[in-house]
């Protein structure tokens, strides 16, 4: 499905701020996988998703999605197969347009954006049905400007807009981090439902270890641009937060220890 080989990325190369994020990074994602990605700040989680989606171009290496090489494609070409929900709820919607206009645009993804009517009346019942599945009451305010919705409502709408065109790969970049715990749970619930119903291959970054354990069939822990932990299938079902935290400490300790020794 997705096959990353020898990915290299360095920010600000040959300067004093040089930061090597990935050095010959490789990863395989199989069809139908739901992967949760954890790791400390600066581990390269978001950069990885950005490189896959094309908003950051890798220095070297190959990325193959369904057999096609996408590493050199511009972002708008890749997004035809990849759907993405961002941490910031404002990134996935157009605030000055109303809900139905936003949905209609998302629905039209992959087709021609020509001079036909923006919202066709025939589609409205379908959109309403999709919205009522979110159980946020959005189906009764389809002509409300998206800019007036709350963060949670917007994020739910973003999720719906991203998945309505059935992408091959769904990238979720901490998409619940900006929401309150209750709304966050709701969005996670929705995510699980949509992903399992449509069987979309998904990669989700999260800082919530409970979420990371509970959801999906595979867990990756990134540290300094490397996969330090890769737990799949049965093993993942038996995973607890304690085990994960211990692993987390173990991986991080190396760095901390040497610092401590240095400054002792």
């Amino acid at each position: 499905m997705l096959c990353i080989r020898n990915l290299c990325k360095t920010f600000h190369p040959n300067t004093i701020n040089e930061k090597k994020i990935f050095h010959h990074f490789s990863l395989d994602v199989s069809d139908g996988d739901f992967i949760t990605i954890i790791g400390s700040n600066g581990a390269g989680k978001s950069t990885l998703l950005n490189i896959i989606a094309g908003s950051i171009i890798a220095d070297d290496g190959s990325i193959q999605l369904k057999g096609t090489e996408i590493a050199t494609q511009p972002e708008f070409k890749r997004t035809q197969l990849i759907g993405r929900v961002f941490q910031d709820p404002t990134m996935g919607t157009s605030p000055s347009m109303d809900i139905i206009e936003n949905l209609s645009m998302a629905m039209n993804k992959g087709k021609r954006f020509g001079l036909t009517k923006g919202v066709s009346k025939k589609e409205i019942p379908y959109f309403k049905e999709m919205l009522s599945a979110l159980s946020l009451g959005l189906e009764n305010q389809i002509h409300t400007k998206v800019g007036l919705l709350s963060g949670g409502q917007r994020q739910a709408l973003s999720l719906l807009m991203t998945t309505i065109s059935k992408p091959n790969l769904l990238l979720l970049d901490e998409h619940t981090a900006a929401l309150d715990p209750k709304t966050s749970d709701r969005i996670i619930h929705l995510t699980k439902k949509i992903v399992s119903e449509q069987k979309i291959t998904t990669m989700m970054i999260t800082h919530n270890l409970n979420q990371a354990i509970e959801i999906g069939n595979r867990l990756l822990m990134l540290h300094e641009g490397k996969v330090v932990l890769d737990i799949k299938g049965e093993e993942k079902k038996n995973l607890t937060v304690d085990i994960l935290l211990k692993e987390f400490e173990k991986k991080q300790n190396k760095g901390i220890l040497s610092d401590r020794v240095l400054f002792a």
Binding site: M91, S94, P95, M97
Partner: peptide, 18 residues
């Protein structure tokens, strides 16, 4: 719609594969 969205949120238009 695309023109409006381009001014509003360019990222969305890119996400639509445009």
């Amino acid at each position: 719609f695309l023109i409006k969205a381009t001014g509003d949120n360019p990222q969305l238009v890119t996400s639509l594969g445009i």
